[in-house]
Simulated assay, not measured.
Amino acid sequence: MDRCQWTDVLLEIGGGATATGSAHRSKFVVFYVHGWKHNSAPADSDLQNFTALVAKLTDAKKNSGQDVVGVFIGWPGASSPVPGLKNLTFWDRKNAADRAIAVSNVTKLLGAAANIKRRRSDPKDFITAIGHSFGARILFSSVAPVLLHNQSMAHPGGHGVYDAFYGAANLTILLNPAFEASRFSAFNSNRRIQEQYNRAQEPTLLTISTLNDYPTRFAFSAGQLLTGRWSERERTTLGNYGDYVTHTLRKTASAPQQLADARWFDQFCEKTKNERGNEETLCLTRTAQEAQPGNPFLVARTDGTILNGHNGIWKDTFQTWLIKFIEATELAQRQQK
């Protein structure tokens, strides 16, 4: 990792080399870890799309008193420049993602950013981390130990109510994540009706997978079988493992009927406009099987009309909805402090 880039990122998050006390502006920081077939080259489509997302966030935040800081985290997700050969690099790039996990640079960077946020003590500072595909694999493996540690430290010690807790990022978002459902098992084991989540607890992890993401639905499973991973949780990605799904994201004509004991993120609906300019309502809704209200680890499924395929995460309607969800989470967490 380039030390100069590292220093520049942390100085930008901190408000500059000379920023002290109340003189600096609040920061809204968004990290992005790209996925398979991408890298940090200037012409890379993910870098261009992320730059456009930062521009949208900057526009949305123009009256908030916050500076938007976008951080694109690159790794060698593309190893072949030949279009036809790119599809053959899936498992090789999976191994490259695991090597990126092993050196712990993303964990270190998020921890450093969280420490800057802690020292600044600005209630309007907010950190979002987004990962896609194998980038979501890298990001999840980087944040999971801290999240599990903080959740354990917030445990009531018996049957009761957790204290509110978060990770290094205020909100981590995983889009079409390419990792085994088994990696989420420790989180799922905490879905117990014997303990409840605090009313002050807001979302800290949101995963969204689409049903027509064929690389994670079929190719991933086939590769796992070829390497001897026979159990369903090891050969199936998180978004395709039904037992771990807590929410659905769907288009709807109107808001669904209110759930019992629902938190705002158990039924979050926002109006967007599609490519034809027609108004649509996208609703994130807790599934009937999810019996633990307020679970801050949301595992959502959607379909191709919202996320179209493995790389369909940049669709305008979905981006509009996602920005609204991030803003709602930011506001809710700030109000709980």
Rank of each mutant, 00 (worst) to 15 (best):
Q258C: 07
R301L: 09
S254C: 08
D316A: 15
Y32G: 11
G277Y: 06
V82A: 13
N190F: 14
A219N: 06
I173P: 10
Q257Y: 09
P76H: 07
S22R: 15
G242C: 10
L331A: 14
D303N: 15
V9K: 05
V68E: 00
Q267S: 12
P203N: 02
Q336F: 04
W230K: 13
L147F: 12
T237S: 11
R334L: 06
S45D: 01
A19W: 04
Q333S: 10
A43R: 15
P156W: 11
P83K: 09
A186L: 13
I326T: 05
R191K: 13
F126G: 05
G304E: 02
K271D: 00
L139A: 04
K117D: 00
P123C: 10
R137Q: 06
D125K: 14
T204Y: 07
G131P: 03
P296C: 12
L47S: 02
T329S: 11
Y241D: 01
E195N: 15
G35C: 08
S182E: 01
K273F: 12
G135N: 06
K56M: 07
T210K: 06
T89L: 15
T7Q: 13
F297Y: 14
I323W: 05
T305H: 13
L211C: 07
G242Q: 09
G309L: 10
S64M: 09
H310D: 00
G70V: 04
T237G: 04
R334H: 06
E195V: 15
G15W: 05
T285S: 15
A112N: 04
D59M: 14
L85G: 03
L331F: 09
V9Q: 01
